[in-house]
Design a protein around this nucleic acid. Structure first.
Lengths: 129, 129
DNA sequence: CCTTGACCTTCCAGTGACTGGAAGGCCTAG
DNA sequence: CTAGGCCTTCCAGTCACTGGAAGGTCAAGG
């Protein structure tokens, strides 16, 4: 299979697939014409990485997860630890964003949003009161 | 005032302050020795940008907000629109992260996390079921 | 046989918002 | 006169791609 077919099947852009080869996540074969030749296993790995990325795992976490996936003697505890670390990270991001949202909501609510210059949003940014 | 004092007072790293000059957010004066010389107005702007960044506004949004702040004839509606656009962005990010969190939580919960290799997290990433 | 257009290749540069580090000038205290 | 703590510029790296240029390959149609 050529890269275009793999892109269509996995939903990943060809650029991204080449990038994943660059950084050693996958190692497709090469045809005589220099084209990448993907096996089912390569496709499968790309799907795996795509789903892990969609859950917000970093590339390095994806690499670790892939390694665990391919290790028949893995301990599920190792997988779980990566997932829990990532879950913590996500919770922290959500908390930070929620704080921003609450503050912003208050400011937007307090702002008349008309033709006049008076604006509590700018006042807050200016004073930090 | 030298950059170190400004950094201490605003809480921004010196590197960041120099970067903000690079991209034209501030324009401190220069002493005969080549050192940056910051006026109160520069400090004030840096505080403004620091607070806007803490609320998650992008640098370009900060630039626009600063311009509005310095425009006595601004309409508060323009400020409000920037803030509301950013608020939307934040809500979308929170929603995306919440989805990830929910999925991950379910998977982490389903995983025994012991010495055995069987792992629903890997299974999900592998199958996308 | 030739051309067209859709593929594929590599390589380089840019994104956002910094951050780290090297190499070197300036300034004050002892 | 030296030590150290400032300051300067410039270059490179981060993360995970993304865009684009220049060029090779392949299948179909004339």
């Amino acid at each position: 299979m050529n890269i275009g077919d793999v892109a269509a099947r996995t939903g990943l852009p060809t650029k991204t697939i080449r990038y994943y080869e660059d950084i050693g996540l996958i190692t497709p074969l090469r045809g005589e014409n220099g084209y990448r030749r993907f096996r089912e296993a390569d496709m499968h790995k790309l799907g795996f990485v795509g789903r892990a990325r969609a859950l917000g795992f970093s590339i390095e976490e994806c690499r670790d997860l892939l390694a665990l996936y391919e290790d028949e003697d893995r301990a599920s505890a190792d997988v779980r630890q990566i997932a829990m670390g990532h879950l913590d990270e996500i919770e922290r991001k959500i908390a930070a964003l929620s704080d921003m949202r609450d503050t912003l909501k208050g400011l937007v609510h307090a702002c008349a949003g008309d033709h006049r210059p008076n604006c509590p949003i700018l006042k807050e940014l200016s004073d930090g009161a």
